[in-house]
Design a protein around this nucleic acid. Sequence first.
DNA 1: AAACAAACCTGTGCGC
DNA 2: TGCGCACAGGTTTGTT
Length: 280
Amino acid sequence: MPELPEVETVRRGVQAQVVGRRITAVEVGRERTVRRTSRQALIDGLTGATILAANRRGKYLLCPLDTGDELMVHLRMSGRLLVAAAGTPRPAHTHVVMHLSGSPRQELWFVDPRTFGEVVVFDPANVDVELPELARLGVDPIADGLTRTQLATLLAGRRRLLKPLLLDQHVVAGVGNIYADESLHRARLRHDRLADSLTSREVGRLRDAVVSVLTEAVEAGGSTLTDTQYVDIEGGQGWFQVHHRVYDRAGQRCITCGKADIQRVMMGGRSTCFCPRCQH
DNA sequence: AAACAAACCTGTGCGC
DNA sequence: TGCGCACAGGTTTGTT
């Protein structure tokens, strides 16, 4: 579910509502959510700690603590982070509850039906061992920026299909299935183009498309699909889905050309939607 | 090097 | 209405 724009929206919510507050108590329901370490490690690492900041790298939410440790939350497919008044009935699949200092009394919930997501406290000095994938993340188009030259370098000599490459977090961090399809459509490029076959003009289009799609999606608060799985920290939905041109629009007329129908194929195990007339 | 399938889970929507 | 299947925003692992 959540890709860069959704995680960024959550990050902003954490920044506005949680940063500066102390975690007074921690409850861990399902152990699977803290499988990277353990229930006790999360409780020990968070209890009494104050959250100093809310950062993001790709789809990873990273919160430095005053203990020197860092809190990492990854929402994966179905994770949600919610702030609620203490005592509010918790939704099903609430696996971690962090009680926050201050008044009114509030709690930070990690809710995750599919349990792919995780919550972990790690020592940033030991990140290579405790969270090795973090160091191997590629360029974040929003946090780092992405230049045409940079993207050209990433694509050069890669005999790789364009879409799986965009989805590879070691190359570009933050792009997921929705925004890969939307970016490729905006760049007028097919998902099955070989990365090293792009002209420099096409690389420029792709760079502009990725950055502008992600930027606009962040401004819209992300995409909330019909299942309303994704919501921001206050439970509010995002609105970028009304701007989707291809994602989940298989069989419908292309909004851009008005002439062809959006097609859907599987690529790398992910459904892929594109316009056969607009994209080459 | 790169593409694929399967694995990890639960929920929903669809065809019959 | 109920049942079974396909599929879902992600990532890793093992196999071709």
